[in-house]
Amino acid sequence: MVQHPTLPARRLCLLTLIAALAVLVLWHQPAAAQDAGGQFLGAITDALSDAPAGSDERATLSGRIIQMIALMTVLALAPGLLVVMTSFTRFVIVFSMLRSALGLNQTPPNMVLSSMALFMTFFVMQPVFEDAWQDGIQPLMNNAITEEQAMGRIGDPFKRFMFANTREKDIALFADIAARSENAPVPTGPVTAETTGWRILVPAFMISELRRAFSIGFLIYLPFIAIDLIVASILMSAGMMMLPPVLVSLPFKVIFFVLIDGWYMLAGSLMEGYVPLVGG
């Protein structure tokens, strides 16, 4: 028997469709979207302000409204931006693979691993956040620059960080696909963070992070697999075939990880892969 979607589900699907259409309009017709946004902003400004048109007071109010809309947009997109533009992806994947290699199902819990990855991400990204604040957000709040200039200055530190941690091979892959999709010649010459667009840099950075995270996870798995093999061989030679080897090897893997100070070594190696690049 086919069940029809409920009213909230229909509304959610409708809102998702409207949002998708809005994104397509912004992507393919930026000029029309800018004109519509300007008319909408003008209507809001007229409703909230009694100042005459063209006055400094009305211009300031328009800037504040744009800042408020931009802030709300950033807050709504913050979880996704945290994943695709920072080191959070590598940290959380490595920690998850470490837990699987140890054979622990829910220890440490997901909240602990996510929180540790989050604060390590803040530690690594602090120079980037400071540059974005000093060059873009603070001058914008002081009305020293326009919103368009602020967006460029806020994004530049993130572009430099992502470019420094992305393989040239990955950037070339998406640059070639983008050029072929637009029937344009493949760009030649030196590739820099300024000449690389967000459309190319973000997915290239993500697959570079996934590759490094899986490489680190592979190296983490090796010593624990060796312990499992040794324990399984001993149990087989002793005739205890009914005893699960994983159950016996678990405490040995845990004590091995503690004795080598694994958390210290893992956290240090993960962060050292970023900090020199950011500092340079």
Rank of each mutant, 00 (worst) to 15 (best):
Q3V: 06
T6N: 09
A9F: 07
L12I: 06
T16E: 06
A19S: 09
L21R: 04
A22I: 04
G38C: 01
F40L: 07
L41E: 06
G42C: 08
T45K: 08
A47H: 11
L48K: 02
L48T: 04
L48C: 10
L48D: 11
A53I: 01
A53W: 00
D56K: 07
R58A: 08
R58E: 05
A59W: 02
T60F: 06
Q67G: 05
I69E: 09
T73F: 09
V74M: 06
V74A: 02
L75Q: 00
P79L: 01
P79N: 09
L81H: 06
L81Q: 03
L81S: 08
L82R: 11
V83W: 07
T86R: 00
S87E: 04
F91K: 02
V94D: 01
S96R: 09
M97Y: 02
R99E: 10
S100C: 08
A101R: 07
G103C: 00
L104H: 12
N105G: 13
Q106N: 11
Q106S: 03
Q106L: 01
T107E: 12
T107I: 10
P108A: 13
S115D: 05
S115E: 04
M116N: 03
A117G: 08
A117Q: 13
V128L: 04
E130N: 15
Q134N: 04
Q134M: 02
D135Y: 00
G136Y: 01
L140I: 10
L140W: 12
I145V: 12
T146R: 15
T146V: 03
E147I: 13
M151D: 14
R153I: 09
I154K: 12
F161C: 05
A164V: 01
K169R: 00
K169M: 13
I171H: 07
I171N: 03
S181K: 12
S181Q: 11
S181N: 13
P187V: 01
P190Y: 05
V191Q: 11
E194Y: 09
T195S: 13
T196H: 04
T196P: 06
G197Y: 06
R199N: 14
I200T: 07
V202E: 02
P203H: 14
R211C: 06
A213N: 06
A213L: 12
F214Q: 08
Y221I: 04
F224I: 15
I225M: 15
I225K: 14
D228G: 00
I230S: 06
I234R: 04
S237F: 15
M240W: 11
M240D: 13
M241W: 04
P244Q: 15
V248T: 12
S249L: 00
L250I: 07
P251R: 04
K253D: 08
V254P: 12
I255F: 03
F256I: 05
F257A: 13
V258P: 11
M271S: 11
V278E: 05
